[in-house]
Nucleic acid binder design. Structure first.
Lengths: 99, 99
DNA sequence: CTCAGATATTATTATATTTTTATATTCAGC
DNA sequence: GCTGAATATAAAAATATAATAATATCTGAG
């Protein structure tokens, strides 16, 4: 990776590096969700969710399609779901997390 | 993942989400390096590198062993190297990055 | 003990992120 | 055109991160 790629990659990672945004990715792994469903499922405010979704969309981690008055969110790139496996391992092997 | 795990996972990701810290991980993928080697190879100041390494160590991404007056850095968890593959794909498929 | 090389810490300033609250926009249905 | 549900934006305050410069610590060699 060259310098410029690392800058962008850092931006993408930063977009994931937040509890709510990680939660969004995890929930969307299961399938499309409405904005309302997301903030209810993750227990945060509507405004909060809207702002976090914007960040995820900017990095093309989440895509949104409109349908009437609602918006449906889904993952752009399921490849990053591998990250949850690495993370699971990391939490248990390197940080002392029990099940 | 439960709430608390997401908080920790976000911390770990945040530790990776920085150009220099990503650079460190990438360089260390190739093998152990001295702190001096790292900051020369990545073109940043000694102080900068020391601070970034601290962050990587706190999240158990990098391990350090002492040998005389030098410190040798290496990766704790090579599993996260998969991330670079995902990222490579993401940069090219979703953000318009050419080779 | 002192020196020099290697690394760490501290302080500071600038900038960015997080979170909340309030307000605005959009759109389907009436 | 008005209403209400769904979503977005703006503003603000608190907190965190980034980057640099200056100084400190540690350790092996002599």
């Amino acid at each position: 990776m060259v310098q410029e790629e690392r800058n962008i990659a850092a931006e993408v990672l930063k977009a994931m590096a937040h509890p709510i945004r990680l939660g969004v990715i995890e929930v969307l792994a299961d399938g499309e969700r409405t904005v309302t469903e997301l903030y209810e499922e993750l227990g945060c405010s509507q405004s909060m969710m809207s702002q976090q979704l914007k960040i995820l969309c900017q990095q093309k981690l989440v895509a949104i399609r409109k349908e009437g008055t609602q918006k449906y969110c889904s993952l752009c790139n399921r490849d990053f779901l591998k990250l949850f496996d690495c993370m699971h391992l990391h939490l248990r092997t390197f940080l002392n997390f029990k099940d």
